[in-house]
Amino acid sequence: NVVNEILNYVIVGEYKGQTYNELAKFVDKFGARPSGTEVLEQSIDYMIQLTRDENINDITTEELTVPHWTRGEETLTMLEPRVKNMALLGLGRSVTTPPEGITAEIVVVNSFAELDKYSDSDIEGKIVLYDPIFTTYGETVQYRSQGAAKAAAKGAVASLLRSITPFSINSPHAGSQYYEENVPKIPAAAITLEDADLLRRIYSRGEKIVLNLKMFSTDNSRISRNTLVDYKGTEKPEKLVIVSGHIDSWDVGQGAMDDGGGLFISWAVPVILNRLNLKPRRTIRSIFWTAEELGLIGAKAYEEKHRSEADNINFIMESDEGTFAPLGLAVAGNAETRCIIKEILKLFKSINATTLVEDDSPGSDIAVIIQTGVPGASLHNDNSMYFWFHHTEGDTMNVEDEHELDLGAAFWTAAAYVIADISKDIPR
């Protein structure tokens, strides 16, 4: 009755409310934890001590170089056809504007195909605003990640983006973006749905729109750490079942949802098992990835460092899409793997977390490892509101629910335990 023992201990027993309380203490103490900052390193030290306080001492940190991009003052003002200040968030690693800012007319496009319909001379010297309507994150995030490079290739002087979210109360959403070699680097920022839609309406009426954009930032590199907590297996200690979340966050909000919740349910796995004295056959490794937000930097470093031992990863799990009520797992692997996980998920009928979603590239950080052939899964949860808060000042403890975090921690722990303990390795 191992699964029920874990569920009871976490949901109604001694551990009830602990995940929420520990997450709240963490995010209230440190707030946002951007890559390359001292506060991120302090938060890593805090997690190490918190783990030691649970009498779990098999902890390793692995250093790597991470970006340290720091946001300075940012303003966006519509000058024509009327004066209006607009909320914005510069996108990750964006270059700065001149001190006086960039003042230019805008062109509004809803896709790269629409951008391509304009000649280079139409775009040259303009600010391009991408305003795709949110469908799915995967479909629309390309305008955030590639928009500046594609606009610059046609001669634009700056790139703006309708925030990648289905819902807004005038909240801009940060996020990463990437420049291309041999293309000028231009400032890139996200604006709110409300302002993007206002600009679209004015633009569609054929009126001239002139904006002034000021963005300042610094960009250098620092050393950070991935943190590995091992809960040693009894029979096959070299074999790993990895549970993970990232410890860094954007520089807005508290990073409570992204990815504080994922961090703390993954931290809870060895803690709960240790408290219950449940020892699986294989080792459970809880990883706190660093520098996810600026491009999966920690996961890429881990994959490179541990490439020769990748065969020992039996299964890899990540929670980075919310820790709302768990529904099951989004699983990458062959048919046999998915059948084994499907059988394991049947153990979670009592909490309605039995759904297996087929996903060839689940998660964010773990996608780096899954694409090398390692089977894995991300937490499938009731996260329909996730992108309302994603990368905004609204990503705070208020997003989190104590009971749902209990359900998530219990599910995550029990699922990892069963995968780590069954007699059969998860097949490749």
Partner: peptide, 25 residues
């Protein structure tokens, strides 16, 4: 999407493993 019906999984992973997994509940 939800995949693989039980009869397919029974063939793929076998009754013994299914029973072993069920024993964890």
């Amino acid at each position: 999407k939800v995949v693989y019906k039980d009869d397919v999984c029974n063939v793929l992973i076998g009754d013994d493993l299914i029973a072993e997994i069920a024993s964890y509940e």
